[in-house]
């Protein structure tokens, strides 16, 4: 199967603390998110996707003309009609000989982009494809979501031979309306506790089990596991249920620091886990998209990651932890301004 040839991340520098949100609204609906990442008013899915993709492409020496596909998954495409990916592709200089589409499947559209790129690589249609998950996560005020939603982007360059081999992938899909946003709605709505058992837990667990049983692997075969992380509890519980220990989850669990970056959530977790990986490690990735479905991947980190990391560091390209560490904490009023919550 195809392989991850490179990856890059981007997390905006602004943060707001959960305690600050509860100070303003007088309710504490924190769900294990200490700080959430906030984009500047001049950032959106397109700009964050571009930054992560630039980090991804700059980490390898590649004739950009060979990148023949770009798929970008997001819940916050700036245009309802008109693709985000065209801007990203133009900014990267990979147009016009290109397969390209914006994807939407709530928080799993980014991992689905990886599936599409891998399939196109495996079929021989393309040599390289770029899969991106990016979101400027939306939430209405005085809602659990406001305490949880973060922002960011992660890009993966998929090709035949790379640094992380995709040993297997699996999707699990049903119609389960746990979270949605109609075209005319500014913020998404959700089914409250219905988002748990029949939605997140069922899909993530079933998908992971299907993948592992197909491959004959179990929790102990993986160095790390990364799950979609809408809050701290869900990925922790699902990991435990599947037999993973805390130290297998920790490197890829970013939600306490940046919140739930929707389509970038599990993918950013994966970048952090890969940053921590050594050759020979296996990593499990299971995304979740409301509506609902999961994509699961069994990944094998090969020897090439060492050289990749050297090149990336020598070029001063930031890894995920550097984005997490460098931050500017905002008070609620500036956060509200940056989030466009004031009418001017």
């Amino acid at each position: 199967m195809a392989s991850i040839v490179s990856y890059g991340s981007y997390i905006p520098r602004f943060r707001v603390e959960g305690g600050e949100i509860s100070r303003v609204w007088g309710r504490d609906l924190r769900v294990g998110v200490m700080t959430k990442a906030i984009p500047g008013p001049d950032e959106d899915t397109i700009t964050m996707a571009t930054e992560s993709a630039r980090n991804c492409l700059r980490s390898v020496d590649l004739d950009l003309g060979k990148v023949r596909a770009l798929y970008i998954g997001s819940e916050s495409h700036p245009y309802a009609v008109k693709p985000s990916g065209t801007v990203v592709a133009e900014a990267l200089g990979i147009t016009p000989d290109l397969y390209m589409a914006d994807l939407e499947f709530a928080c799993k559209a980014g991992s689905t982009a990886i599936i599409i790129c891998s399939s196109q690589v495996d079929s021989g249609l393309i040599e390289y494809g770029l899969a991106i998950g990016a979101d400027k996560a939306q939430s209405s005020t005085v809602d659990e979501l406001e305490f949880a939603t973060g922002s960011g982007a992660a890009s993966f360059l998929i090709g035949k031979k790379g640094i992380v081999d995709i040993e297997s992938m699996k999707s699990y899909t049903t119609d389960t309306p746990d979270f949605w946003r109609r075209d005319v709605q500014k913020y998404p709505s959700h089914g409250g506790r219905f988002t748990g058992e029949p939605a997140y837990f069922r899909h993530v667990t079933e998908c992971a089990e299907l993948l592992m049983s197909t491959m004959g692997t179990e929790a102990k075969d993986f160095k790390y596991a990364v799950f979609h992380q809408p809050n701290l509890k869900f990925p922790s519980s699902v990991g435990k249920k599947l037999g993973f220990k805390e130290e297998q989850l920790r490197p890829g669990l970013l939600v306490p620091e940046i919140g739930n970056a929707y389509a970038a959530s599990s993918l950013l977790g994966l970048t952090a886990a890969l940053d921590a990986s050594e050759p020979g490690d296996r990593v499990l990735l299971v995304s979740y998209g409301s509506g609902a479905g999961s994509d699961a991947f069994q990944l094998y980190v090969n020897d090439e990651i060492v050289k990749f990391r050297e090149v990336k560091n020598s070029r001063g390209i930031r890894n995920t932890s550097s984005y997490i560490e460098e931050k500017e904490v905002l008070d609620y009023s500036i956060y509200a301004k940056y989030s466009g919550r004031y009418r001017i």
Binding site: D42, E43, T47
Partner: peptide, 14 residues
């Protein structure tokens, strides 16, 4: 890459 300008009528930012 950043957003430089947004014409009215498009988004949340006015």
């Amino acid at each position: 890459l950043r957003k430089l300008r947004e014409e009215k009528g498009g988004g949340e930012d006015g």
